[in-house]
Design a protein around this nucleic acid. Structure first.
Lengths: 247, 247
DNA sequence: GGGGCTCTTTGATCTGGGTCAATGTTCTTG
DNA sequence: CAAGAACATTGACCCAGATCAAAGAGCCCC
């Protein structure tokens, strides 16, 4: 009972243009073949909330295509996005059964899901999967803490530049290339979604995008297509310890 | 070769007034007995930097007493604290060898350290330790993301109230009691350290502390001793979904 | 292809928290 | 106990980013 039995035409692990960081990178291993029985695909439209904070979650999943956000909402509606999920990113936490955040499809989205129980059992049997998961969780923790620096100490302009740099890098890695001169990408977020991630208002995001455009740091065609003529220039604007832009 | 051979009078795992969340909670198990050979204690003075970001780290550790901070610093000196370490908290990441943050003793500090290599080997042999570590890392991730909401969306007053609530809870758990009416605690942070954690300046921290005192949310004796006459009132001020204050 | 969406930009104004500067208050240590 | 040093408060002023408001752009979908 592989994915092809469930959803004809959907990409299988092996077919994925992007190898799932969590699972598919080891598709060749015998242990994971067993997981195919518990694997299924789900697709969502842009704007749809896949999971509400507090919901029971009986699966883990990784993103096949599209982008999703993790967000926290205060009682009065103030919203903070706490994570972006790109293709190959993993969501779900073995050993816990309620979701701590809202998960929202930011664009049309395809997820590759595994029933949680069998996944946990596999984890118990195969130490390297548990280890891989720890590895990934540590990566997420580092990303979250880097974002804390951004939220607490960076200016609006630096925030925008940082976000663009991060998206550019993820975008480039999808196609296995480096962020080079004249890099063109498609923004997977509305101005409001950017604002929610950066701890700003959408007006400030818009103004700073305009300013970066005016100063030649980026070029814009329409609202979503962004060209980065010089990635190092962008990194300077982001205030990061520059690391060259290569992935 | 137990700890007592190395540092006479230092608390052993079993003697710790606080059981280390990471390790000591399972001291009874046979696997961990082996770790005693690789265990040693180190103490630091308030203000001392234990670990510099980028340093090679050949040990993992947990806090026995005192408080430490994890912080990130930008090239121009802007600083953001990304985590607080209380007694029983764990630091260090099996599978990685350089520290991603500065670790600074915020008060006088005693750490219980394990050489990393043997610890990793133990982890490979005993799945429940790996699982425990994943558990802890997920807790840290949740804490980091909750802090992202604070940094991105809360007002200065809400930030201060949130920090006080968190410290009160950790403080209470040290002594195995609940945060009740007229809870008294000792702040383990200077105004500047609070500011670095909250994404504020020390002046703003001071002003908001004064305001909370004026409004009867807290009482202050000296700079460090804080009394919380009504913990639910404090939680209201923090803007959190109140959960009663019990641990 | 035009009507009604949603998303985005831009402007005018306001304000929370930053900055700079002076003064107070604890802690240390001799 | 006095003298310093480190830490904290308070005041005056300013500015980055929020808020409120009004036009533009895309973009579906009949």
């Amino acid at each position: 009972m592989t994915v092809h039995d469930r959803l004809p035409g959907a990409p299988s692990c092996g077919d994925c243009p992007i190898r799932h960081r969590a699972v598919c990178a080891r598709c060749e291993s015998d242990e994971l073949a067993a997981l195919d029985a518990f694997k299924y695909y789900r697709s969502f439209e842009a704007g749809q909330t896949l999971i509400w904070s507090g919901d029971r979650m009986d699966f883990v999943a990784s993103v096949v295509s599209g982008v999703a956000t993790l967000s926290q909402v205060m009682e009065d509606g103030r919203t903070q996005t706490v994570g972006l999920l790109f293709p190959s990113d993993f969501v779900g936490r073995p050993g816990r059964d309620t979701a701590p955040y809202n998960v929202v499809a930011s664009s049309d989205l395809l997820m590759c899901c595994f029933r949680k129980r069998p996944f946990e059992e596999l984890m118990g049997r195969t130490p390297h999967i548990a280890q891989r998961l720890l590895e990934m969780t540590l990566d997420e923790l580092d990303a979250a803490r880097e974002w804390m620096l951004l939220l607490g100490r960076k200016t609006a302009r630096e925030k925008i530049a940082s976000l663009l740099a991060i998206i550019a890098r993820r975008d480039a890695s999808l196609f296995l290339r480096t962020v080079s001169d004249r890099f063109v990408m498609e923004l997977p977020l509305t101005r409001e979604a950017m604002a929610d991630y950066l701890g700003l208002t959408l007006e400030t995001v818009s103004r700073q995008m305009t300013a970066l455009k005016r100063d030649g740091v980026i070029q814009l065609e329409g609202n979503r297509r962004v060209t980065i003529p010089d990635f190092n220039r962008l990194l300077d604007e982001a205030g990061d310890d520059s690391d060259g832009g290569v992935i």
